[in-house]
């Protein structure tokens, strides 16, 4: 049997999954209460000869309490979900932790173009390096991605990191993540972007610190 989610490999992914499971347990209980009542009532109160239905209007406070009390519980649970969720949201999409490395990612029909600032740490200089579809990052470091689009709206999706962010032309949208496990993960586009949308897919290489150093040396040989 499949797991419900792809393996989580980011520092905040567990929090997203946590909120998912919180909602899952709450809604599962409600599911069985409501559907169970429907099935039970349908069976228990099926038409029997000689029996008349009760004439209940549901307009007295005592009767309405049967609805209003569960409703109050719904409100409380709703707010609980929202308050728990707000913290996770703020962590992922709000204030970002300081960057260890910053990469620019531009969506274009139908590729991701990643730009590394190079050893000087600045974009727009000679040592910038552009690579289509392959994103190399070190594990355990905070990576900032500055998202832009050349043409239409794309969506930067890292399923294993539980990160998704639309990429809108005319805007620079910041995102961040921190990978906790080395490996190769995919970066599909999640927003319909044209006939090549299906198959627009990048690859995230999460490398150990040593492997990352090695990759950097390969790309920016020190003698230069």
């Amino acid at each position: 049997m499949l797991n419900w989610f792809p393996e989580n490999v980011s520092t905040f992914g567990g929090e997203v999954d946590g909120i998912f499971w919180l909602i899952f347990y709450i809604t599962t209980v409600w599911f069985f209460i409501t559907e169970g009542l429907i099935v039970y009532f349908a069976f228990r109160y099926r038409r029997k000869p000689g029996e008349k239905a009760a004439y209940v209007l549901g307009n007295t406070t005592a009767e309405l309490a049967w609805i209003l009390v569960p409703l109050a519980i719904v409100v409380v649970l709703d707010l609980w979900i929202d308050i728990r969720g707000a913290a996770v949201w703020a962590n992922i999409k709000g204030e970002r932790p300081a960057a260890d490395i910053t990469v620019r990612a531009m969506g274009k029909q139908f590729n991701w173009e990643f730009t590394y600032p190079g050893p000087d740490g600045k974009f727009g200089t000679e040592d910038d390096l552009k690579i289509d579809n392959d994103l190399h990052v070190p594990v355990g470091k905070v990576v900032h991605v500055v998202l832009t689009s050349k043409d239409v709206i794309h969506s930067f999706f890292l399923p294993h990191a539980r990160l998704k962010q639309d990429v809108v032309p005319g805007r620079e949208i910041p995102a961040w993540f921190q990978i906790s496990k080395p490996g190769e993960y995919e970066i599909p586009c999640a927003e319909l972007c044209g006939f090549g949308h299906s198959g627009m897919n990048g690859k995230l290489y999460a490398l150990s610190t040593e492997d990352y150093e090695k990759w950097v040396k390969e790309k920016w040989p020190p003698e230069k």
Binding site: K52, A54, A86
Partner: peptide
Amino acid sequence: SITTIIISVPFAFVIFSIIATLWRASIT
């Protein structure tokens, strides 16, 4: 997010009321 989750309240009311309609009914 808050308005969205809160909008479930009036709908929950309607749904609960429909379920309550089935209580002590005579169902065909």
